[in-house]
Design a protein around this nucleic acid. Structure first.
Lengths: 220, 220
DNA sequence: GGTTGGTGAGCGAGCGCTCAGTCGGACAAG
DNA sequence: CTTGTCCGACTGAGCGCTCGCTCACCAACC
């Protein structure tokens, strides 16, 4: 992953270990172009997969040439990294934006599941992409993905824990709480990769309702 | 996917729509060689992924040259197809081999979950592979994979239905049974792609126990 | 206003290489 | 000689990435 000779980045010596060479360009332009790249790449990766998409296609779909693409990105793998990062950020933002704070315990958990499952539905193509291409990421970037997944799971674990503390949920030990949180996270993803079997018979609302029943029924 | 000029398969005109040209060779050798190919490919695909594995590597790992590889296979995609087929067959065989028939209702379901989760653990690398590479399969082959997944799910659905009928489980409608069956199937897979978070805190036996509780607690 | 020189975003032909798939021939058995 | 099996050098398409170049823009100077 050699940085381009033309961009000697004389500024901070080694400040940004991760995050693609930040060069000496207009940072506004850089972020705008990167967003264009990510938008184009997401569409293409979803349609054809990472390996079957060429860098030329990405550049074209983003509205410029390969030369320009490589002004803003160090390698094709970096594009995938940016894409994964963007997707996770969007998932997290959508969830946090819609989470009601006011409620407590069981109610809060129920609301969170509702929000989470809805977001999973909205972004199912993206979530599928993450499942399929995470392994193509370099080691370090993969840790980033897993860390995000863990953070999301922790969100559910916290809600359950709070429910236990205020007695709106039955007592649970550490392991049980962790597992239940993972169950919720995965059951959300399940809607994205089992839609082919599920959605003909079940609406999203039905799905959410039944899964809430399954989890919360176990917790009361 | 151009068939080799050297293998004109003059025999039945279009008998085998799927299933690689069966030529006019010793069928014993063909199946033996194909098994070698599949064994080698599984190992390599698990380690490096489909796209990053070369046909030459597969041939070498199988113990012969590329030329020979292409005597028994029509394309690289076909290797992936054979691999997916073999994995599914193995999963199914292992499960059916260990399923006790004698028991009934809730007991049978519980036993089936135990067996299924154990097989998922044994074959977790293979299941992960399926998740990641199914999309690289040609359309028709993909249907095969989904059909297998459906058959496995139906197995659980049948057990639940029988449990409802003999009153060892509470009454459930069609949609609920279907969803629960999918939940079980996916919860089995979950152990394979969340081991990084789960297994430090939970043994397989713990995992099985808690998940059985979750599902069966809901059904009694 | 006109000229000049500097700057850097953008370009795309093409380099270097990888890799799926081919083919002509070697070799052994019948 | 024929047939079945295997070999591996060879081919050519296609890919990621590079780099010499263009050109719009701006500021300085006449």
């Amino acid at each position: 992953m050699s940085p381009r000779a033309r961009a000697p980045k004389a500024a901070p010596p080694a400040a940004e270990a991760r995050d693609i060479p930040t060069e000496v360009k207009d940072p506004g332009l850089v972020t705008r172009r990167r967003r264009q790249i990510v938008d184009a790449a997401v569409r293409l990766f979803i349609a054809k997969g990472f390996h079957k998409t060429t860098t030329r296609e990405i550049a074209k779909a983003a509205g410029f040439s390969i030369g320009t693409l490589y002004e803003y990105v160090v390698s094709k793998e970096d594009v995938l990294y940016l894409v994964c990062q963007a997707i996770h950020q969007e998932v997290e933002e959508r969830i946090r934006a819609r989470l009601p704070q006011a409620s407590h315990g069981a109610m809060a958990l129920e609301a969170a599941m509702e929000v989470y499952f809805t977001v999973c539905d909205e972004m199912s193509d993206h979530i599928l992409l993450i499942y399929q291409e995470t392994k193509s990421l370099p080691k370090e970037a993969m840790r980033f993905v897993l860390a995000h997944e863990q953070r999301l799971t922790d969100l559910f674990a916290d809600l359950i824990r709070r429910g236990v503390e205020d007695y709106s949920l039955r007592p649970l030990n550490h392991a049980e709480i962790g597992l239940l949180a993972h169950d919720i996270a995965v059951l959300g993803h399940m809607w994205t990769f089992r839609r082919w079997a599920l959605s003909p018979r079940l609406s999203l609302a039905d799905y959410i309702g039944l899964q809430k029943e399954l989890i919360l029924g176990q917790l009361r």
